[in-house]
Design a protein around this nucleic acid. Structure first.
Length: 554
RNA sequence: GGCUCGUUGGUGAAAUGGUUAACACAUUGCCCUCUCAAGGCAACAUUCAUGGGUUCAAAUCCCAUACGAGUCACCA
């Protein structure tokens, strides 16, 4: 009996060979330099910032080279699959408008290199495993979990390298006859790759981020197919899928670095060309309690999960810019020089990726986002704000729908100038800074933030005097302010700041104190955008209404 | 413990053997000013984890040490 018989016994119904698949999935005909990349998440958790970075880099690489970006669903770990994780991945890609060229999701699919779901590719993997067994490069291993832990414990105790290699690979030299016998007897087994590497020999691997790295050869007989569901392990699926889908560049987290020797041997065993690798740095986080630097955690850090940014209403392009800024140290400078160029036209260079992990900085995101929002047209901002509110805050949605024009006018204050206001880092931040524009909101508990002048009688006098005798909605801003100064002086306030500084005791206060009175009556807030604009948006009637509320509640 | 990578200010980082170690964020101060925001100006690493070496010259090259990270599953 031969290895061929053994292979036949394990995979009786597999008739295709790796060569057949070679013809089914031919080399792609793309233009020179086109990159074929993939985003290959496993649906075992919700999409997080690290996934996002990987997806964005892939997208940029593909778009920038007129290549192909595809998504592959790596669902080989059925037990750990999380309900809804896949949906969220697709939702997020769509939300950020980085949807792939090729994919398979629900009943939709695109691309000729599918299936793009690993659990649907069983026959393909089995053909490759079968081939390996039939030439004696893979073998069934009958070691039980107990035996495996025993080996590991022994190795740990005696400070040996851990793993199945050399004399620990007990099933490696089992003859086909015996293997067939044991399989027929119903023994459980995994298929292990029969490594021919030598741990004492080195080879040089070139990573696009880290440069040349010297590794010892792999000599571990790693499982390539699991026993129960006969699904491949990650390593084997990586080989088969990325070869057959003709991937040119693999973008993956640095945690994969250490399995490079294995992948190197696997690709060489089939004589396939390895793709190029971009091992991205981890996103780290300083733990607030312990101060320790650690991998960003889905549990402890809400900002790790992509829900966070959507719920808070960060503009999608701001998030992408923030991610790109971490991903590539050149990006920030490029962005300031090309403020209006789409991010995917950025000439991404893996060499400019940081080889060490970066702390994710929410302050930086806020800054990027504030800048971004400040440059939006008020109508566009309103539109996005409304869309966000519709999903995340019904109350805000109702209010701003009702007061569309007022909202846009408010958002437009000191916008569209050379140096626009930078008030909001996300849509969630808008309402707390604008609620006072809406009549309905004045039912709430009010906290008047009066400053120097707190006397109710004085406040009422100032307001009545101003609203009845001074305010004119036709005034331009200069005139508006001049009139305020005149009234301020009439009522005992310094109209001129310098004068006031020289002899503050001669006055009740200065113009700033004076406008603060009006500002707080109209908004309850001591800090608001330009009062002139706020007054014009409110109009005289509402201003009187606010005064009445003050009389009652203050 | 083995293998691999990393270590420049509070954060992200530039600099790839050669004057005062870019820039951005954050922080602080001043100016401007009807508040705020924005803006302008300024401050913020006598020093590039530590110790040795190479060199006329080192954050940059070499060695050692320390510390940190990743990985060592029939998980990806």
């Amino acid at each position: 009996m031969t290895y061929k018989d053994l292979a036949e016994l394990i995979f009786p119904s597999i008739t295709k060979t790796p060569e057949d698949y070679e013809n089914i999935y031919p080399e792609r005909s793309l233009s020179e330099g086109a990159k074929v990349v993939r985003f290959a998440p496993s649906p075992t958790g919700f999409m997080h910032i690290g996934n996002m970075m990987s997806a964005v880099i892939n997208y940029v690489l593909a778009r920038g080279s007129k290549g192909i970006f595809y998504v592959r669903n790596e669902d080989t770990d059925q037990a750990r699959t999380v309900e809804g994780a896949l949906d969220f991945i697709h939702h997020t890609l769509k939300y950020y408008d980085i949807y792939p060229d090729e994919y398979e999701y629900n009943d939709k699919q695109a691309g000729n290199y599918g299936p793009y779901v690993q659990s649907e590719r069983m026959e393909i993997y089995h053909a490759f495993v079968k081939h390996l067994i039939s030439i004696g490069k893979a073998y069934p291993c009958f070691l039980t979990p107990e035996e495996l832990t025993e080996i590991r414990e022994y190795q740990t105790k005696s400070k040996k390298r851990i793993g199945i290699y050399g004399k620990y690979a007990k099933c490696r030299d089992i003859t086909p006859e015996e293997a067939i016998k044991r399989i027929k007897a119903g023994e459980k087994f995994v298929i292990r790759f029969k490594s021919e590497g030598d741990f004492n020999k080195k080879f040089v691997f070139e990573d696009l981020v880290q440069g040349k790295i010297e590794f010892p050869e792999n000599d571990l007989d790693v499982p390539i197919m699991k026993s129960g569901d006969l699904l491949p392990t990650y390593h084997f699926a990586h080989l088969v899928d990325d070869h057959l889908m003709r991937t040119t560049h693999v973008v993956r987290g640095q945690e994969w670095m250490s399995s490079v020797p294995l992948h190197y041997e696997l690709f060489h065993a089939f004589g396939y060309k390895m793709p190029k690798y971009i091992h991205t740095s981890l996103i780290l986080k300083k733990d607030e309690e312990t101060g320790a630097i650690r991998k960003i955690s889905k549990r402890k850090d809400p900002e790790a999960l992509m829900f966070f940014y959507e719920e808070k209403g960060y503009p999608i392009l701001a998030v992408i810019d923030a991610v790109m800024t971490i991903a590539n140290s050149n990006y920030e400078e490029w962005r300031t020089n090309h403020p209006d160029t789409p991010f995917y036209e950025f000439p991404f260079s893996p060499k400019k990726m940081s080889p060490s992990g970066a702390l994710f900085d929410l302050d930086k995101l806020d800054n990027i986002s504030k800048n971004f929002i400040s440059k939006m047209k008020a109508e566009d901002l309103y539109h996005d704000y409304l869309t966000w509110a519709k999903k995340y805050d019904e109350h805000i949605y109702d209010v701003i729908s009702k007061y569309k024009d007022e909202t846009i006018a408010f958002l437009n204050i000191e916008r569209e100038t050379k140096k626009p206001r930078k008030d909001y880092e996300n849509y969630l931040a808008i309402f707390p800074k604008s609620w006072y524009m809406y009549d309905e909101e004045w039912d709430r508990e009010l906290e008047y933030e009066f400053g120097k002048i707190t006397d109710k009688e004085e406040i009422v006098i100032v307001m009545e005097e101003y609203l009845n005798n001074v305010y004119d909605s036709n005034d331009m801003q200069d005139e508006w302010f001049n009139k305020i100064k005149v009234l301020a002086e009439k009522l005992g306030y310094a109209g001129d700041m310098k004068e006031y500084r020289e002899s503050p005791d001669n006055y009740k206060g200065n113009v700033a104190d004076f406008t603060t009175i009006m500002r707080v009556v109209l908004t309850t807030k001591a800090m608001t955008p330009n009062l002139y604009d706020i007054m014009n948006i409110l109009g005289k009637d509402k201003m009187f209404k606010r005064l009445e509320i003050l009389k009652e509640k203050y």
